[in-house]
């Protein structure tokens, strides 16, 4: 049973990591446009503006 002393806190730490990830996502406005993000992953047009920056350099 002594293994619990290690395992249970380990499980808790993993849960805390998940919570921290959620908090980060919330702060970084990841949930602002749930609908749009679902479609954005299919297009590679996010390169549009970065391309332009390279031209200017």
């Amino acid at each position: 049973m002594n293994i619990l002393v290690v395992l249970v806190p380990a499980a808790l730490l993993l849960g805390l990591a998940g919570l921290a990830a959620f908090m980060w996502a919330l702060r970084a406005n990841q949930f602002d446009d749930v609908e749009g993000s679902a479609h954005r992953i299919l297009s590679d047009d996010d390169l549009r503006f970065s391309d332009r920056h390279n031209e200017h350099k």
């Binding site: 749009g36 679902a38 954005r40 047009d45």
Partner: peptide
Amino acid sequence: CAACMDDIEGAMA
């Protein structure tokens, strides 16, 4: 529809 997103952002770019 979702394609409008590309259309609008593309036109602006």
